[in-house]
């Protein structure tokens, strides 16, 4: 579905992301974990087109999309959410979703799509409210609904679970599973909350200091000595 080849981002001498490759299968959930500053969000930004890669390539179903601007990447079918939620504060909940449906990949039946996305995340009854009146979990769901309304094929989720309370975290994890099944989506997921990563992800990629240091099933990577030393430091 999505293939990333040796993607790099350099700022002068600093390598924020250093030749990271990954493959995301159809309807797969691939987790991307790693300590703070490992380059996870930069990797996402490059795939989503909001930052230009220094080198490397991105393919969506075989088509090269590396270096396209963000709005064009959305039209191709890759959409991201932000770690710090960014709803349009001046638009209602419905209009937020409508923006996604109107300008996304498939722009037909925008109003119906916006409604469908809001119903899926459970925000339809708040459609007339402004995002500022939602809880953090509510705004994260709105961000998710807005992304879904663009009819994506690949969803990039940047810490949609972190920061909410434990019961909401569980709800979000179930929501993500539900979304994958309802929409047949492939999902790339940055997450810090390890229990969620363990239950949600089919496979996990571990980044440290810009490099991919391990990959495998959740159980494999957490017992990998390289991963343990990346998180805890070596003895």
């Amino acid at each position: 579905m999505l293939r990333v080849e040796k993607l790099s981002k350099r700022y002068g001498g600093l390598k924020a992301v250093d030749e990271v490759s990954l493959e995301l299968g159809r309807e797969e959930i691939l987790g991307v974990i790693g300590p703070n500053g490992a380059g996870k969000t930069t990797l996402f930004s490059m795939i989503a087109g909001s930052q230009k890669p220094s080198s490397g390539a991105v393919f969506l179903e075989g088509e090269s999309i590396g270096g396209l601007p963000a709005h064009r990447v959305v039209h191709k079918g890759i959409v991201r959410t932000h770690q710090i939620v960014r709803p349009f504060a001046n638009l209602t909940v419905f209009e937020n979703a409508l923006a996604g449906a109107t300008f996304g990949r498939d722009q037909t039946h925008a109003r119906a799509k916006a409604q469908e996305a809001l119903e899926l995340v459970g925000l339809w009854n708040r459609r007339g409210d402004l995002p500022g009146s939602l809880t953090l979990a509510g705004r994260k769901k709105l961000e998710l609904a807005r992304a879904l309304a663009t009819t994506p094929r690949v969803l990039l989720l940047d810490e949609v679970i972190a920061g909410v309370n434990p019961s909401e975290a569980l709800e979000m994890a179930q929501l993500i599973k539900k979304i994958r099944e309802a929409r047949k989506l492939s999902i790339l997921l940055i997450e810090h909350v390890m229990p969620a990563v363990m239950t949600l992800c089919d496979r996990v990629l571990v980044l440290d200091a810009g490099r991919a240091i391990a990959a495998g099933t959740p159980a494999q990577v957490v017992s990998d000595p390289l991963v343990i030393s990346a998180y805890l430091g070596s003895a």
């Binding site: 989503a48 087109g49 909001s50 601007p69 963000a70 709005h71 959305v74 039209h75 959409v79 991201r80 932000h82 960014r86 709803p87 349009f88 504060a89 001046n90 638009l91 209009e95 923006a99 996604g100 300008f103 996304g104 990949r105 807005r146 992304a147 309304a149 663009t150």
Partner: peptide
């Protein structure tokens, strides 16, 4: 209106 709200988020919805 979306651009006024958040220009980068606007790009992220296409």
């Amino acid at each position: 209106f979306a651009i006024r709200g958040d220009v980068e988020a606007a790009a992220d919805v296409g």
